[in-house]
Structure formats: C-alpha cells, structure tokens
Design a protein around this nucleic acid. Structure first.
Ligand code: FES
Ligand code: FES
Lengths: 144, 144
DNA sequence: GTAATATTAGACCAATTAGTCTGAAATGTC
DNA sequence: GACATTTCAGACTAATTGGTCTAATATTAC
C-alpha cells in the first residue's frame, strides 16, 4: 500500500513538481517526464490529460507541444493536485474504518487522529509548487 | 481509498477492540463479531485466523469456541495489530511516492511528513486495547 | 457415539487500481 | 500539402485487494 495517496496521485505530484521547475510556459513532453521520473509513459499520459481537463495544466499538441502549468507555481499547492486526483475523502474518514468520522460518534482515536490529519491537511495547503521547486534536491529534477 | 491502513487492517482493529471489551478469556465467535460490527463473515474469519497464527489471538473450535486475546489488553497496542496485518511499510515510504524516503535523498516535504508520521506512530504505540476499551462510546460495542 | 457448532484451510470470484495499446486529431516544419 | 511529432480518447489487460464458498477438523453436549 502507498501512504495515504494513490499511486496515480503520487505520479501527478511528481510530474507537476517537475513542470514547476521549468520557466513558466515551457512545454514539456510526456517523453521527457517519463524518462526523468521513471513513470510508465501511457499511464502518465492519462494522468496529465486528466489534470489538463481539470484546469491544472495546459497542453498543446504537435512538435514543440507538451504540458505546462496552467497557473503560476505559487498558486498551485499539493492540496490542489490531491484534490483533483484522489479527492478529499481522506479528510473525513476514520483511521479504524468506522463509517461516521465525526464528533457525533467518535472512535477511540478520533481526536488524536483529527489533529494529525489537520497537520497533513495544512502541510498540503501551505506548500505551493514554487516552494517545493526551491527546496527540491533530487537529482532527477536538477539536470538540465 | 482507506486512510493509511487496508480495509483488512481496519476490520482487525475493530474486532480486536471488541474482544478487549469482554472479560479476559471470554471466547467470542465470529458470528457475534460479524453481527455486531457488520464485517463480512468469511472475510473476518480469515483475518482472525491470521491474527491467531501470529499469536495475537487465541482460538478454540467447537461450541463455546471462538476467539480471545492472547495477551492482557494492556499489552496489545494498535501498533501490534497494524504490524501484524499491514506491516510497517508506512513508516518509511514517501508521501510523494519517491523510492527512497530518508535523510539521504529527501523530497520537499520529507521533514514535515516525518514529524506527522512520528505522530501517527506514537499514537499507535501508546494506545493499548485497555485504553481504547475504556474510551469507546460506540453503541455497537456497548450492548451486552 | 452422534449431532451440533465452531474454527481452519484453501480454492475461488468480484471489484478496484495500475498499466498497456492502438488509432485519431492537432500542430509545427519543410 | 506531406510529414513528423505530439496530445487525446477509449478500449483493453494485469495485478492487487476485497470478499465468497465449500469441505475438513476439532470440541462440546446429549
Ligand atoms: S471516528 Fe475514527 S478517526 Fe474519527
Ligand atoms: S522522501 Fe518524501 S516523505 Fe521522505
């Protein structure tokens, strides 16, 4: 199992971060992304298409075509991507799997989990792509 | 998607908690568990068998048979159950899906995720079944 | 010992998620 | 306009997880 987010979502996060590192408006092809990030070509294609349809990315066909951020990197957060790919269910589901995660009918770890979840939530909301681009040290993002 | 743990693991947590509410040594049948907790009978059977094989539960066949905790409720933590069912991968995998989650090659949210993860980890370790049994208010656990 | 009741074991099926393939449509270059 | 290169759309396959079914075995009660 992956941690919290689906693999699809993880790939989306990685790819969008890669785009954020390029000068605004630069078109990046799936080919380049798949080569640098090691994500299966056609799978990534579908994910990016989806993000484009949802307005997070812009795309263009033909040679010199590719994908680019649809908004300034400062305005795209991790949260936007997670929301677009996996949805927001993780914000109100119970760790122990009980159906109603709320103050009404809390499980025995509800309050503790609540604050941890808030922590995750705020991490996602406060980290925008420009921040991440500045902090990233992974080599696959750095070369050319 | 479930939050962090597989559905199997969620069911295990719910079931073990149910056992912890009964006087030590009381044998509880799958039938009772499945009725009270709404978990599919045969699926739960497999999960409990597995927990028994791993030494967390004791089981007995025949009428008056069933399952019971193999150790005092104070000595079984959420962590023990998660470890037995899902394993400990969640403790060292990257939120963004990168292969190596460590200080060597951290992603841009590694340190923040690290402390949140530690929070989850310590929640699991510090909550034992006796604690949970005391705190639980869910009706399905309370009636006889 | 017989019958009833419970777990055990393992094969099996269903649903979801991950990943592949093919062909069409758009765009840039010559 | 022909051609190469790219995304686009959707059907398809593979793998994992969730869930079902059946027959066997152990135990209790009569
Ligand atoms: S009810 Fe369990 S985490 Fe909210
Ligand atoms: S490297 Fe991403 S969370 Fe550790």
């Amino acid at each position: 199992m992956s941690v919290i987010f689906s693999r699809q979502c993880e790939y989306a996060l990685q790819a969008v971060l890669y785009l954020a590192l390029k000068p605004a408006g630069t078109m990046i092809s799936i080919k380049e992304l798949t080569k640098k990030l090691g994500i299966p070509y056609h799978f990534l294609a579908k994910i990016l298409q989806d993000l484009a349809n949802q307005g997070l990315l812009r795309s263009m066909k033909g040679p010199t075509g590719g994908f680019t951020l649809a908004h300034p990197a400062t305005e795209i957060t991790l949260f936007h991507i997670v929301e677009a790919v996996d949805g927001l269910d993780f914000l109100n589901t119970c760790v122990m799997g009980f159906p109603d995660c709320s103050g009404n009918n809390p499980c025995a770890v509800h309050s503790q989990w609540g604050s941890l979840r808030d922590g995750i939530h705020s991490m996602l909301v406060h980290k925008n792509m420009a921040d991440l681009a500045k902090e990233i040290t992974k080599p696959e993002y750095k070369s050319s």
